[in-house]
Design a binder for these strands. Structure first.
Length: 483
DNA sequence: TAGTGTTTACGGGAGG
DNA sequence: CCTCCCGTAAACACTA
């Protein structure tokens, strides 16, 4: 059971920091002046074509926004417990990344020699994981302003983040560059060879699809989008490049961990608590896995996410040497899940056999994400429901917004056949919730929001329809009811 | 010419 | 030791 509810109806709460917006817009214009600019800083065609393939809409489920705190990832003093990322709250966020760039203020910088950012890992999908991450990351690495620390994300992840944050289904290479430099100070000062790596990644990583620019579209180069088949994986488990040695929970943090009681509201990092259920699940987990508090949540999450990082799902397109990487073929379409191949489902199944991952995730997610109408976290009873921003959603098998049907209470109950991808979508949501879009939001005023959902989300109707082969209801009425 | 995109090659880290 | 992932470097072609 997972509840992400809040009083506000979505997509409210996705208000960007105006200063950030203005700055990003201005910078984007400088960057891509040859292309007709829209308010989001990307080319007009980007803005026009939103109906492609991203899981962008997942970002709209931001519970952080629901909590009333504007999130600004990779910077600031507060770290989002979900993802382990730091975030600024309100005015703590620099109006411009450059404005807060120590390197641009005379701070010495030695790019290319990243420090131990790897030990301050990013998003975790559960309260438990976030808790651990939070605990063992006392010295918060501000990737947005720290020019010395290379972000612990793979280039593929960075690209994916940029794509997600852009609110568009496809973005230009320059937009990717810009987002990365905006959000990671390191790359603003690092040797530009990283851009080569970005391009290399785009070309070789099958997660990314090139969308040629139309002939009548001005500008250079094409657009890139995320293959929806891999998007969630990319974001769910790729927040770190490599596995790390076991980490220790900060003893000081452990002392702050209190049994029982609701989790503190986001933004109260000083007082953490774990519900008894979570503790029990943790204990079960430890018993089942033999890990203790040295358990690396990052690696674990990668496993939970389908172990795709281990090379089973999101590999490179490159032609591998004949005797190497024979497994690097395009992953087949998933059978029951669009996101899991058979083998992966087996893996997850075997995992389930040993340990109830769902229970752990669900429990922790409940404890972490449950926001009641007063925007306070509250422990949740475990059931099979999901509430996002005031909308009650049954635990889906293959989550698709269009498959949701509203019940009499305005809740969205998904059919049982929709279950499989929720775990990944949860992960995706959690992994992307913290993302900040430097791109100016398009018209976010009032009524347009919901109608813009499917447009801005980048959800392709055709793909959604493909996802719901078995979906035979009145599509238009469902869409209308959903909107 | 600069930016973009593709491709190849190589080495290091990590896991099996 | 092998495989895989990832990063890096470089060469090359194409295009605005």
């Amino acid at each position: 059971m997972l509840t992400l509810s809040c009083a506000d109806t979505w997509p409210e709460g996705s208000v960007a920091l105006e200063e950030e917006v203005v700055t990003a817009a201005a910078q984007a214009e400088e960057l891509d002046g040859s292309v007709t600019q829209s308010s989001n800083g990307c080319s007009s065609s980007v803005c026009l074509d939103d109906s492609l393939t991203s899981l962008q809409w997942l970002q709209e489920f931001s519970i952080i926004n629901a909590s009333g705190n504007q999130q600004v990832p990779f910077s600031g003093q507060n770290q989002h417990p979900l993802c382990g990322h730091q975030r600024l709250v309100g005015s703590e966020a620099p109006a411009s990344p450059m404005a807060a760039d120590p390197a641009s203020m005379g701070m010495p910088h030695t790019p290319g020699k990243p420090t131990s950012a790897a030990f301050c890992r990013g998003p975790s999908s559960s309260a438990l994981l976030g808790l651990v991450t939070y605990g063992h990351c006392p010295e918060e690495v501000d990737y947005k302003t720290n020019p010395h620390v290379k972000p612990p994300y793979s280039y593929a992840t960075l690209i994916c983040m940029a794509m997600q944050a852009s609110k568009k289904s496809k973005i230009t290479l320059s937009c990717i560059y810009k987002w990365i430099t905006d959000n990671f100070c390191y790359f603003r000062h690092a040797d530009p060879t990283w851009q080569n790596s970005i391009r290399h990644n785009l070309s070789l990583n099958k997660c990314f699809i090139k969308v040629p620019r139309q002939k009548d579209e001005p500008g250079k180069g094409g657009f890139w989008k995320i293959d929806p088949q891999y998007a969630d994986r990319l974001l769910s488990g790729a927040y770190k490049k490599r596995r790390l040695p076991p980490v220790q929970i900060n003893p000081a943090l452990q002392a702050r961990v209190k049994p029982a009681g609701p989790l503190p509201a986001l933004g109260r990092p000083g007082e953490l608590s774990v519900s008894p259920e979570s503790q029990q699940l943790l204990q079960e987990f430890e018993e089942a896995t033999g890990v203790d508090q040295n358990w690396d949540p990052c690696g674990a999450e990668a496993n939970v996410s389908g172990a795709w990082l281990s090379g089973k799902g999101c590999g490179f397109k490159r032609k591998q040497p004949a005797l190497r990487r024979t497994s690097m073929v395009k992953a087949p379409r998933r059978s029951s899940s669009p996101l899991l191949c058979v083998d992966e489902q087996k893996e997850l199944g075997s995992l389930k056999g040993d340990f109830d991952w769902d229970a752990l995730l669900d429990s922790e997610l409940c404890g972490e994400l449950s926001l009641d109408s007063t925007c306070q976290l509250s422990p949740m009873e475990r059931d099979d429901d999901l509430t996002v921003r005031g909308r009650h959603i049954g635990r889906p098998q293959q989550w698709s917004p269009l498959e949701a049907s509203a019940d009499s209470t305005g809740s969205y109950i998904l059919s049982e056949t929709q279950q499989s991808s929720l775990d990944f979508d949860e992960e995706t949501f959690l992994a992307t919730a913290f993302l900040q879009s430097p791109w100016p939001e398009e018209d976010e005023a009032g009524q347009g929001k919901r109608a813009d959902f499917l447009c801005n989300s980048g959800v392709n109707f055709d793909q959604l329809l493909n996802l719901s082969d078995s979906f035979s209801g009145d599509l238009s009425s469902k869409i209308e009811s959903f909107l």
